[in-house]
Design a protein around this nucleic acid. Structure first.
Lengths: 84, 84
DNA sequence: TTTGTTTATACGCTAAAGCGTATATAAATG
DNA sequence: CATTTATATACGCTTTAGCGTATAAACAAA
């Protein structure tokens, strides 16, 4: 499953973490690539809602990820609710 | 075109703005729904990199949008470069 | 035009993000 | 086990997001 829906900071953080691990990287390595602290990466992955877009997009670039923004679909709504 | 790729704060801001307009709303209205100031919505749409994830996701919810996070594809890379 | 609406910008304030640095946990590995 | 590696957390600091409020500038409509 390479495409993940994110409606919350926690979900996007979790997706970032999965991708990082899939690439065999650690937080320190991502921090080096992005010039962010390991602690900052930790916060993003934990879903801290105060994280800035600058931080998110730096990490997305480092992990070779991109976002798609689209209207919510019923199908994706169903998927999300599985979580609860 | 209802799906948009965003690799930068400016791109996500632009996508939010298009969606808001497509829904016939103004920034003040989005601010009311989200309990954010009109000025804050303005900043997000302008692509201010310091905008917080909390702000982004509040607005996405108000506009009934969601994010998809996925690996960058060559196809999407081509599309992005059209912009420049 | 003139008026009304919408969006951008400004000021002072409070809260907090990210910084460098350091350490405490946790997880993996020998 | 012991030891390395990885992640979470802490402290003091500087910078800044978002706040309320207000106004300026841009845009639309009469």
């Amino acid at each position: 499953m390479t495409e993940q829906i994110a409606r919350t900071p926690k979900q996007i953080g979790a997706a970032v973490r999965r991708r990082r691990r899939a690439l065999g990287m650690n937080q320190k390595g991502v921090g080096t690539k992005t010039q962010l602290r390991q602690a900052t990466i930790s916060g993003l992955e934990a879903g801290e809602a105060g994280t800035q877009l600058r931080t998110l997009f730096s990490v997305l670039t480092a992990l070779n990820l991109e976002l798609v923004i689209r209207p919510r679909t019923q199908a994706s709504t169903d998927k999300i609710e599985e979580i609860f």
